[in-house]
Write a protein that binds this DNA or RNA. Structure first.
Lengths: 210, 210
DNA sequence: CAAATTTTTGACCGGATGGACAAACGTTAG
DNA sequence: CTAACGTTTGTCCATCCGGTCAAAAATTTG
């Protein structure tokens, strides 16, 4: 899977591999897998192509490492959604964490979006397995809150989808958001405004009980 | 821009060009521009590569034609948002139309998403021009409704973003949605459930006035 | 320091890919 | 029917790109 195989990692290997992954994240997330070339990544990492291939034998190995690493952190916010606290506070926290991830890790979000857009060829099993299980589990928790009359009744799975969609939108469609908001409103305040809007949309909506 | 240039189109030319565009939409929308090859498109269109290149001189010409055609219809739902009718009914209609587009034209949605994900290199001027103008205009209408107390007060631009995000999500992230819903719930009812959910999320939320 | 090991590089290879071209084939209009 | 025009195809080319390799340079180890 990776070049220096089973042997222990050298200091240089650890550093250079990290450098490559950082560069590759930048390149892959904007051009997609096939749209990116090893030369591009090598140049972004400040090394020659053969040198890069010394650390990762194949282009796909870099991509796979990035995806694996991404998935580990990607679902963390949802995992943290627990039924111990106040339901409204839990959901508010989840939305906030997801929006923060869109703000702080937009490249990871785009890498993921690229993968899904192309039919998720490399992570389909994970979607049908781990992800589905996790969503089922959290949807059950949310349903419980609804039955208990703690939040308004709605489809919990589509609620999760809409939270994913609205938060990741600020990473995946960033250029469009900035273009539409213009230089003035498109500044740093974007995410603050978005947070306020989403808070109102979801929390006020969920408080209203039929 | 296109092969048979300024001359009048033959019957065969009209048919074959349409065939190519249909095939190219399929290929581009799933593999992106760089990820697609002329051979792939030619095969999907049932013709040889040189034959395809007789109708479109360059690969980019096909893509550009698709993008231009897409943009014409893409913004139509938003254009139709008018301030003549009932505000709630107008917004409900807009959300419904957008969701129908995600259902009926998912490939167009993914083509657009691919373009934006990669930084919108070919349509940036349009985003900053036509699109921004349109959004500004519609945001003003929505703001008017809010000032008049007809709908709840919120950020009109982020409201539009969230409608885009939630509806297009069902086209762009289709494989993920299906994987998570599973074979049972993932059937045809997806969009019906989504419509009900979005109706509740937005309409109930907007009705509530502070 | 010197040997062993790791890292870096230039040169190279084979296959894929976008595109050119001329010749063959088909269609249509006079 | 035939000349003109439109369509299709096989062949070819230059470039790009993923990946290899051996040898040079740098680093680590004893």
């Amino acid at each position: 899977m990776d070049a220096p195989a089973k042997k222990r990692r050298t200091r240089i290997q650890t550093e250079k591999r990290e450098l490559i992954l950082e560069a590759a994240l930048e390149v892959f997330s904007t051009h997609g897998f096939r749209g990116s070339t090893i030369d591009q990544i090598a140049e972004a990492a400040g090394m020659s192509k053969p040198n890069l291939l010394y650390y990762f034998r194949r282009k796909e190995d870099i991509h796979e490492t990035l995806i694996q690493r991404l998935l580990k952190t990607w679902l963390q916010p949802l995992r943290e959604l627990d039924d111990v606290g106040d339901p409204i506070a839990e959901l508010r926290g989840y939305i906030r964490r997801k929006l923060e991830m869109a703000r702080d890790y937009p490249r990871e979000s785009r890498l993921f979006a690229n993968e899904i857009l192309q039919g998720a060829p490399r992570i389909m099993p994970l979607l049908e397995g781990e992800l589905k299980t996790l969503v089922d589990e959290k949807a059950a928790i949310i349903s419980g809150w609804m039955r208990a009359g703690k939040i308004a009744t709605t489809d919990p799975r589509h609620l999760i989808f809409s939270i994913w969609a609205t938060t990741q939108h600020y990473a995946d469609f960033d250029v469009q958001v900035r273009a539409v908001l213009g230089p003035d409103r498109g500044g740093d305040g974007r995410f603050h405004d978005a947070a306020r809007f989403l808070e109102q949309l979801y929390i006020d909506g969920l408080r209203a009980k039929p």
